[in-house]
Design a protein around this nucleic acid. Structure first.
Lengths: 233, 233
DNA sequence: ACCGCATTTATTGTTGACGATAATACCCTG
DNA sequence: CAGGGTATTATCGTCAACAATAAATGCGGT
């Protein structure tokens, strides 16, 4: 459509991914195969592959004979995702902080610089992507492909969760819209300084921060909601 | 072939899975699509799905335009898998041990009993499967679907690794062929007693035991191997 | 006018044939 | 006889038409 012939399967995956985690495709949205076909100018077989990959990463629900829907992670799922993140990322930071080379440091700095740029530029989906990729970079530099591949999935789901549970309702204090740029900087410094304990603590704190900003109240009773609605009338 | 019409995609996945983790299909073996088609009496499209799932769980390598091969996990990968297991399973045991109900206890006991049966019966692939499923059961009872789904993949890969690096070369002492039955019993008791610390320690120890039985020497120099070969002649 | 049922439509799932690519075998040449 | 290059074969990847299933619509009965 807009990009002529830039439509292999990975590109399409990437674009749909960005649309989902940037909340351009709302959770629950149905993704019709044919629609995606003409959008990206690819055949149904390819679309099917992309949807399969997305469902594998739990970003879409694939309901047999019914269709593909953007996932709607529950609060419980969200909490577990962050539990898993703390578990895995603390370990990865511990590894990397224990053996961070000059080269590693440089790569991290470069990445944070790019994040900063994107933050200034204000491009939401790019910021989200880079923010996730910073965490992935830690895993890669720690040289732990297995944990990193898990992290890849977790961070995708995490991005969707943040998009879902962050912007909806009003919050006390300033509305920090997912700008962990400065926290990344601090983390980077601790890692580069090989200060393992501080780095691990910062990572845990960083993840707690992100989770704390979410509205993860358990779904309330219908009755209460109805009352609230009537009282507002 | 042997089972008439018992060939949906999940069944085939299961059968191939068992063949791989029980070392009936050796690592590196090529899995030709058509071969699998006639073996299980299903169409190529289905075979493709099965192979895609297996490759997603890292039990087969899918090389474009070349074919599907049973995975050959490296020693480094093996070590990381066990690192991940310790990390995740310790957490799951901690969770479950903190809130183990009578019902949970009963389910765990039932499972261990089945393991014991299979151990007596001496059915290798069944034993491997049950042994893995015990660990998965802990995750399910802990009510942590996200971590449990990761565990599912990790345990599959782990089974393949055990099959690969356990039986090959002679070992000092008794040749314990993957019979963690008794250790499972001990673990169960600690969990049922809600003794969190002991349960976590037992799990870590259990996993260390399994890993320690593997021969994970880093791949040696070709030259050395040649010398060794000549000296043995 | 509303609810339930049948028909139609739209969307997904599957199959088989075709085309592309890599491995193999053969032949020709030095 | 060995090596390289080409032709052949086998296998994977892709596409398009067909079948099956679920959603939507309209009709008739109550």
């Amino acid at each position: 459509m807009q990009s002529p012939k830039t439509s292999d399967v990975d590109t399409v995956y990437q674009r749909v991914w960005e649309a989902i985690v940037a909340h351009k495709l709302l959770p629950g949205t149905r993704l019709k195969e044919e629609e995606l076909c003409e959008t990206f100018g690819i055949s149904r077989g390819f679309v099917r592959k992309v949807l399969l990959q997305l469902s594998h990463h739990k970003l879409v629900n694939l309901v047999p004979n019914s269709g593909a829907f953007v996932a709607e992670p529950s609060p419980a799922e969200a909490r577990e995702i962050f539990q898993a993140r703390r578990l895995i990322e603390a370990e990865l930071v511990r590894e990397l902080a224990g053996k961070c080379t000059e080269q590693d440091k440089r790569l991290l700095e470069q990445h944070v610089a790019r994040e900063h740029e994107a933050f200034e530029g204000g491009q939401l989906s790019l910021r989200i992507r880079l923010s996730g990729e910073f965490h992935l970079l830690i895993g890669q530099l720690a040289n732990k492909p297995v944990l990193t591949s898990f992290l890849h999935e977790i961070i995708s789901r995490s991005s969707l969760i943040v998009a879902l549970y962050q912007g909806t309702s009003p919050r006390k204090g300033k509305q920090r819209i997912y700008s962990p740029c400065s926290e990344h900087t601090g983390l980077l410094e601790a890692i580069a300084a090989r200060d393992v304990q501080t780095a691990v603590d910062l990572m845990r704190e960083h993840l707690n921060e992100i989770e704390a900003q979410l509205q993860l109240e358990p779904p309330k009773e219908e009755a209460l909601d109805l009352k609230a609605i009537f009282s507002e009338l």
